[in-house]
Design a protein around this nucleic acid. Structure first.
Lengths: 210, 210
DNA sequence: GTCTATATCCAGATAGAC
DNA sequence: GTCTATCTGGATATAGAC
């Protein structure tokens, strides 16, 4: 068995796939065990090959973690930007965002894992500096939600608390829920979205819509 | 220098103090770095003595962590029980609870550290089984809040979503906030309590009271 | 590209001197 | 009660065979 020259791109593709595979396994492990407690052997075993081979694709455990953090932050930002651009009212946007995020928690694991990873980066002193920096610099999703809330307040459908306070609670509440889900995956039922919505939207407006 | 026989109790007291000292330092370290990344030398250094001496007071790193978890859970439960017993209306109880918890976040670090510790125990697979068990068995604070909410609904001052959903969001939202604070201790300002309250309490009731 | 050593380091825990 | 020295295991990362 040998590799013909013309398979070069194909090989590249295989390499990328391997890297993806490592990342997706590492994401779960890092999220569930934390950075420090996740061993390279855990990742290699989950990926189905030997421990040494990891270093063919990544230079270190840190590098894997940083790659995952970058990815998680990018996905969240992209979603926030997309949300802001949609031709919807502020009310509709907030409802859509909460709905989607809850749905993400209900169906997929990925969203929850991303939250857990970012939380580690924010909280823990035992996380690569590069990862901490990336997360700290990323406040876009807070700003987007704060802008939507402000717009909704001007428009009259939102409660008139400090918009940044509201945006903070928007994200921290969802985050808290994601953490809960991570610890109770088996019997986790997503709560009624309207409870969260009532932190932001005036009651009569909300009940009118429902 | 020798120890006279009659100093026995005094010695016991010193020993207890040392143990307390170890615990309070370990709490911060475990909360900030996580269980796996916290080294015995970190704890001994923070406490100002040699690494070996820790083992005079505790048998292992696990034992320290478990002691801390027990303590954290006990404090939270005690507070919940106390809250339920107070001669207040459900409305007053929920407001008091949110107020106190936010205040705890604002002033002290301890509450936030307890949250972080319990989160680790719930989420992480790299945590001593005994600690996980203790936390899993402790659902009292959820039950207490659910009961208060149910009472408030019967009484007519609370929103009529599923009481367990509401209790879940009560705790996960506060928890999410504690995590945020842990990562932004320097410039963290507690949000307006009324935003959280509006998840539970009917708007006209709440504004009447304020 | 993959595996099997293995070098190296570090952390938890123990032993024993003072 | 406290420290220093040491044992032991385990984890990251490297080297080199296939």
């Amino acid at each position: 068995m040998f590799t013909s020259p013309r398979n070069k791109e194909s090989n590249e593709r295989v390499k990328d796939e391997r890297r993806e595979q490592i990342l997706s396994n590492a994401l779960i492990l890092f999220a569930k065990k934390g950075f420090a407690a996740t061993k390279i052997t855990d990742i290699s075993a989950a990926s189905g090959f030997s421990q040494g081979l990891i270093y063919h694709y990544y230079q270190s455990k840190e590098e894997i973690f940083v790659a995952l953090i970058k990815n998680a932050v990018a996905i969240m930002n992209a979603a926030a930007v997309e949300l802001e651009r949609l031709p919807l009212t502020p009310l509709e946007k907030i409802k859509l965002a909460i709905g989607k995020l809850l749905q993400g928690l209900e169906e997929g694991e990925q969203v929850a894992y991303h939250y857990l990873l970012i939380n580690q980066a924010v909280i823990s002193e035992a996380i690569p500096d590069e990862a901490k920096l990336i997360v700290e610099e990323q406040t876009l999703r807070y700003e987007v939600i704060a802008r939507i809330i402000s717009a909704g307040q001007r428009e009259g459908s939102f409660k008139k608390y400090d918009a940044r306070d509201m945006a903070l609670l928007f994200w921290t509440s969802l985050n808290g829920l994601a953490i809960y889900k991570a610890g109770h995956a088996d019997n986790f039922k997503v709560p009624d979205a309207n409870i969260l919505i009532s932190m932001f939207v005036l009651e009569n407006i909300n009940s009118k819509e429902v």
